[in-house]
């Protein structure tokens, strides 16, 4: 009964959605409204104005840098909320975490340990080259975070957490927020507006280092946050 009612409701809901979709301009046409207002400017002037050959990075870090600054604050706040929800003292039966939940086959362990350096190199490349090739801070950071989670699964969290001791971790988690604040205030002191990058003049050489700094902050912070969320959920004190 409940299922039938739900299905009827969904079919009812699909009618206006499909009707709206049928009125939209065809997918892939170049005179699509999303492609006509601000985007031509980004595509033509982007490399010149921002120093990013990758226009997606130019949009994220430069044209919409405030958005991204707010967003790294969102993910940091989410981490704090996860800690608040999970890391309260638990009732008495606090059991020791086993090294890993399921026995790990030596094959998995070998593969993760062998691939780890290559994965790290790839993500570092993505982070520091994000302004000119596909990739960027979020992508590279998430790759390192996923690697830390994989290592925790095969080697146990205790051993993986030794890579990032607690004192270091506490500073890496807000890295993105702190880096945005540092670069933003520096931009304000030098160029008059928060988070502004040089467009021309004697400080032009600072532009790419600024972008790279922000990317590194996002990457390091993202990796630490993703791994810490996993550790907090697992119960090993993120």
């Amino acid at each position: 009964m409940r299922r039938a009612l739900t299905l009827a409701l969904l079919i009812l809901a699909s009618v206006p959605l499909l009707y709206a979709v049928s009125l939209l301009p065809p997918v892939g046409s170049e005179d699509n409204p999303t492609y006509t207002y601000v985007v031509p400017h980004y595509l033509e002037e982007g490399p010149e104005e921002t120093g990013c050959e990758n226009i997606v990075t130019a949009v994220i870090l430069n044209y919409r840098g405030f958005d991204t600054g707010g967003e790294v604050t969102v993910i940091f706040t989410a981490l704090m909320a996860v800690f608040g929800v999970l890391l309260i003292p638990r009732p008495a039966e606090k059991v020791r975490q086993p090294e890993s939940a399921v026995p790990v086959s030596p094959v998995t362990l070998f593969i993760v340990r062998t691939l780890a350096p290559f994965i790290v190199v790839f993500s570092v490349y993505q982070i520091i080259n994000g302004h000119s090739t596909p990739g960027g801070g979020f992508q590279g950071g998430t790759i390192i975070g996923a690697l830390l989670i994989a290592a925790s699964l095969v080697m146990g969290s205790e051993r993986t957490q030794r890579l990032l001791p607690e004192g270091v971790r506490r500073w890496l988690q807000p890295a993105a927020v702190l880096m945005f604040a540092v670069v933003g205030v520096t931009g304000m002191l030098l160029f008059g507006e928060y988070l502004s990058y040089p467009i021309e003049g004697e400080y032009l050489f600072l532009r790419v280092p600024f972008l790279t700094l922000v990317e590194i902050g996002i990457g390091v912070g993202g990796a630490a946050i993703v791994a810490s969320i996993f550790w907090a959920m697992e119960g090993s004190d993120g």
Partner: peptide
């Protein structure tokens, strides 16, 4: 179009945050 890609990159990270919470 680079704009949706940038917006959705932001959106994915926010989705990650909400899922984690």
């Amino acid at each position: 179009n680079p704009l949706p890609q940038g917006l959705i990159l932001t959106g994915i990270v926010v989705a990650l945050s909400t899922s984690a919470l």
